[in-house]
Design a protein around this nucleic acid. Structure first.
Lengths: 229, 229
DNA sequence: TAAAAAAAATGATATTTATCATCTTTGAAA
DNA sequence: TTTCAAAGATGATAAATATCATTTTTTTTA
């Protein structure tokens, strides 16, 4: 359980920073970020921002995992992305001038810092490295989503699940994958029942281990072969 | 038929410019762009760039329509976007440093200008208005693709077709929608046969008119209701 | 720790949509 | 114009996946 009292995480000592867009910042740039930001503890399942509202700044994930999702016509979630430690969340709507088209909520306990819109846009304008990092990130995600769309259109649920498990494996790193079946189904884009049946098949075929709700990848090669390119 | 000899379209007189990212450029900025660019005629079905290659610059669409697509495992196309006059194509890979994840080819005869990578990146660095326009565009598309993914996951083919027809209606403006059934199916993410059957249903229900290969939207309201939000 | 709620699992069935085979029409090129 | 290839259309069938109903297990909270 995270320390809830630890409200002021420091950027200087933030373990997630080196792998983030702020990774290349020099000491004085980092202390500037540190001054601008505030930090808060979020409990599991807590919303960070919702679809349709206007952004007041960006969120920087110090600890924990966050789902980014949209809702379809009947309110059903489609998970677009799962953010991990070090990621900056919600900067898309910062530039588009539109309200959020996606929502974000925590998948577990999180420490999340906040940088106000003005401060952040100012950083972008004055810091070419950060700016280029952001543009690179936006572009990379755009490419990823093109592939996501293609997968949805052309791969079977089984293939998409293999693909999703590999992505989740990357996100969770050493830890075991830890999502509800419903969230996982909403990431793959299928019915929860279908997902559960397929997980069982994958287990029987030796590709994964199921530890109640947590999943462990056993045979990544086999999953890759199934997932296709 | 376009004038193939007219190789040097001028930015100053480009009809598509006002609605483009260069729309707010002043005279001297525009003449600078004009000097940097080259222009070429493309015939129908001609590739502009292919998946996996590295970008050498960006393309600016003066006349015609272009499909942006990826290919799935078996080489089947998934159309991600259809670009029209005034759009800048291929700037994603410019920033990501990765090779193109999508390919582009013309859907009809086109005049397309080209701006080299160095020149374009230089413009971005020195022109905050252009830069902000690009970031806004990247962000907007990112949001659109989140919705695209959700539609693929949650809407029926019938609903997606209604959605696609509305988008195509916007793109083609006064003209009638003019795509092969296969391209349309690859945009909606369905089999060609299924698309053909649904088009017939839509015609019978008074939502569209079919003029051989061209389509005309008759009842946009009904399509919107079907498409959902 | 017991009770309640939420999540996971399973079975039966319905529905949607893809696939395959075939035929017709249209448009381009000889 | 005739010919030929590509695109469009149609019917029959198969496969994949969703939905609904119900039960079991796990987790949360009183």
């Amino acid at each position: 359980m995270l320390d809830k009292s630890h409200k002021h995480v420091s950027c200087e000592t933030c373990g997630a920073r080196k792998s983030s867009l702020f990774g290349s910042f020099c000491d004085h740039e980092i202390s500037h970020v540190d001054e601008q930001k505030s930090c808060a503890y979020y409990k599991k399942g807590q919303p960070i921002f919702i679809e349709g509202s206007f952004p007041r700044g960006v969120f920087c994930l110090n600890q924990g995992k966050v789902k980014i999702f949209t809702r379809g016509d009947e309110g059903k979630e489609q998970i677009i992305h799962i953010a991990k430690e070090g990621e900056i969340i919600g900067f898309r709507a910062m530039f588009s001038g539109e309200p959020y088209k996606v929502a974000a909520s925590t998948l577990e306990e999180c420490n999340i810092c906040f940088i106000g819109k003005e401060d952040f846009l100012n950083m972008i304008d004055t810091n070419p490295t950060l700016r280029n990092g952001i543009m690179k990130e936006l572009s990379k995600e755009l490419g990823d989503r093109a592939i996501f769309i293609t997968n949805m259109a052309q791969k079977s649920v089984r293939e998409r699940l293999a693909f999703a498990l590999l992505i989740l494996g990357d996100i969770y790193g050493d830890e075991q994958i830890n999502l509800t079946r419903e969230d996982m189904a909403n990431f793959v884009g299928t019915a929860t029942e279908t997902l559960i049946r397929l997980l069982k098949d994958f287990k029987d075929e030796g590709m994964i281990e199921i530890h109640t709700r947590k999943l462990e990848i056993i045979d990544a090669d086999k999953l890759m072969q199934l997932a296709g390119r």
